[in-house]
Design a protein around this nucleic acid. Structure first.
Lengths: 226, 226
DNA sequence: AGTCACACGTGACAC
DNA sequence: TGTGTCACGTGTGAC
């Protein structure tokens, strides 16, 4: 028992071993020396193995570089997450997965929700389904306009709505980086109905065409669902 | 040369080796059998090493589990990124770092830009530094109001601005989840100056107090920098 | 051929 | 103590 222990320590595989280390690939297996062609000759290794030894050394170093590359990236990840340098590789990766899913979800929520202006000009006029005002014949629908921002866009929009006798129930206006998106929930007058929607649609279209006279952009829509 | 090659293959370390595998830890080093206490006895291993053998087996299995855990997370990452299952571990991690930085940047841009309404009521009135209208004495500043949304908030705001003879140069309005944030860039009249800012500030404050009569919220600010 | 990347078993170290 | 993590050298298959 203590014998084997001593043996363990004496033979412990330090890097500065006095044995030429590339030889170990063969030596490792030489316990089956009953079959070995070179039993018990650790210091007189089989001749002409220089190539193999060199290859082995290259392999060893390449593997070390690979490990270093991976660990370097893992350390970068450590700095990008709320975790100290002593967190486990596995736990670190778990946190990374977690965080990535989280950010992905948030980003999709943000971009998919139409609060932000997109890069493309868009018009949509959508019926909200039923009318929300107790069956008195008023139509409620949502109009969305996304385009380059300009100072008198809102007044123009207000003018259009007024001329069509539409009342604005709700407005979401976002401008970002020179682009704007306006989402309006509007209601028709009691006596005027579906044609208002077409008028609004046309008006928005001309508004957008007027807007984008200088800079051409792809126009998505108009979209119309009743 | 060809001898050693044969030796390599014959002794190749397969899992189903007919040697009891835990013994290899000692056997690996036994090439220095000139020092070994048990030279050349691979089939009659030193007695009473059962504990050591069991420990070694446990160790081996634990290490395998650890590797599997890490690789499982790496595979999860592969599914979360635009990359197939044949991408390198290192490259995969590089992509992860890249993507994480990217998302982090985007999120900070979005959240730090005050386009989204926050959970807390806020008022801020900030001078933009110089005046942007050619030194004609008009002051330009940015007023921000974040509070619960209500239908006549904008009209109230417009009324305040009109009564203070402030003209709106730019407006960013965002509503989200029942909360709204309005950022207004306004300019004073030529003859009226700093006191307009205080009036606006007070007006916004009363507006917000009136707004939040039912639901109490923390009020951040008002903030005033000239 | 030779290079690359991966999984494995193992010694070392930590708590 | 054992239990877990890490780096290392190595075998091996893929291209």
């Amino acid at each position: 028992m203590e014998n084997s222990d001593d043996l363990f320590h004496f033979l412990s595989n330090t890097n500065d071993s006095f044995f030429p280390e590339p030889a170990s690939s063969i030596m490792q297996q030489s316990f089956s020396s009953s079959f070995s062609y070179y039993p018990l000759q650790p210091f007189n290794a089989p001749p002409h193995q220089d190539k193999a030894l060199a290859a082995l050394r290259n392999h060893k170093e390449a593997e070390k570089r690979r490990r270093e590359r991976i660990n370097a990236h893992l350390n970068k990840l450590r700095t990008l997450l709320p975790c100290n340098s002593k967190t486990d590789k596995a736990s670190l990766l778990a946190k990374v997965v977690e965080r990535l899913k989280e950010l992905k979800q948030q980003m999709s929520e943000i971009t998919q929700s139409e609060t932000f202006p997109s890069e493309n000009d868009e018009i949509s006029v959508l019926s909200t389904g039923g009318d929300g005002s107790g069956g008195d014949g008023r139509l409620i629908f949502k109009a969305s306009l996304c385009c380059e921002d300009r100072s008198d866009l809102i007044p123009d929009l207000v003018g259009i709505l007024k001329s069509l006798h539409l009342t604005t129930l709700r407005a979401e206006i976002a401008t970002l980086g020179g682009r704007t998106r306006n989402v309006l929930v509007v209601a028709t007058d009691k006596d005027r109905s579906v044609e208002s929607i077409h008028f609004l649609q046309n008006s928005l279209h001309t508004l957008l065409q007027h807007n984008g006279a200088s800079k051409r952009r792809r126009v998505v829509g108009p979209n119309f669902i009743v």
